Amino acid sequence: VYKEIAITNGCINRMSKEELRAKLSEFKLETRGVKDVLKKRLKNYYKKQK
């Protein structure tokens, strides 16, 4: 499980701001904020899904 999260986090870290926004809107999450906030939001979402 932790390895999956680590791989997902690595992918998220390599995403551009536009990619992050697209992914967040896909999951109907808030898309406003600076890049670091968007990354954190997406990581938290994936963590809750596990």
Rank of each mutant, 00 (worst) to 15 (best):
1 V>M: 12
1 V>Y: 12
2 Y>V: 14
3 K>W: 05
3 K>N: 15
3 K>R: 11
4 E>S: 12
4 E>I: 08
4 E>M: 11
4 E>R: 07
5 I>N: 14
5 I>R: 12
5 I>D: 14
7 I>L: 14
8 T>H: 08
8 T>I: 08
9 N>L: 11
9 N>E: 08
9 N>I: 13
9 N>G: 08
10 G>H: 09
10 G>I: 07
11 C>S: 14
11 C>M: 15
11 C>E: 15
11 C>I: 14
11 C>Q: 15
11 C>Y: 13
12 I>N: 04
12 I>G: 02
12 I>S: 03
12 I>M: 05
12 I>P: 03
12 I>Q: 01
13 N>Y: 06
14 R>L: 06
14 R>E: 07
14 R>G: 10
15 M>N: 02
15 M>T: 06
15 M>G: 00
16 S>N: 13
16 S>W: 00
16 S>I: 02
17 K>R: 09
17 K>Y: 04
17 K>E: 05
17 K>G: 04
19 E>C: 06
19 E>A: 10
19 E>N: 07
20 L>R: 00
20 L>C: 01
21 R>S: 05
21 R>W: 02
21 R>L: 05
21 R>P: 03
21 R>F: 03
21 R>I: 08
22 A>G: 11
23 K>N: 07
23 K>Y: 07
23 K>F: 04
23 K>G: 02
23 K>T: 10
24 L>Q: 01
24 L>V: 02
24 L>E: 00
25 S>T: 11
25 S>D: 12
26 E>I: 06
26 E>Y: 10
26 E>N: 08
26 E>W: 06
26 E>T: 09
27 F>Y: 14
27 F>N: 14
27 F>V: 15
28 K>F: 06
28 K>Y: 06
29 L>Q: 09
29 L>H: 00
29 L>F: 03
29 L>S: 04
30 E>W: 05
30 E>R: 03
30 E>V: 03
31 T>F: 15
31 T>V: 11
32 R>P: 00
33 G>V: 03
33 G>S: 02
34 V>H: 15
35 K>D: 03
35 K>V: 08
35 K>T: 07
35 K>W: 02
36 D>Y: 10
36 D>T: 13
36 D>M: 08
37 V>H: 03
37 V>E: 12
38 L>G: 00
38 L>S: 05
39 K>N: 04
39 K>D: 00
39 K>Q: 06
39 K>R: 11
39 K>I: 06
39 K>S: 05
39 K>V: 09
40 K>T: 06
40 K>S: 05
40 K>A: 06
40 K>H: 04
40 K>V: 04
40 K>Y: 03
40 K>Q: 07
41 R>W: 00
41 R>Q: 00
41 R>N: 01
42 L>T: 00
42 L>D: 01
42 L>P: 00
42 L>G: 02
43 K>H: 03
43 K>C: 02
43 K>A: 04
43 K>Y: 03
44 N>H: 12
44 N>L: 10
44 N>Q: 12
44 N>I: 09
45 Y>N: 04
45 Y>G: 01
45 Y>L: 04
46 Y>K: 07
46 Y>F: 15
46 Y>W: 08
46 Y>R: 08
47 K>V: 06
47 K>T: 06
47 K>A: 08
48 K>Y: 08
48 K>C: 07
48 K>S: 10
48 K>M: 09
48 K>N: 10
48 K>H: 09
49 Q>M: 13
49 Q>T: 12
49 Q>C: 10
49 Q>D: 07
49 Q>F: 09
49 Q>P: 03
50 K>E: 11
50 K>D: 07
50 K>G: 07
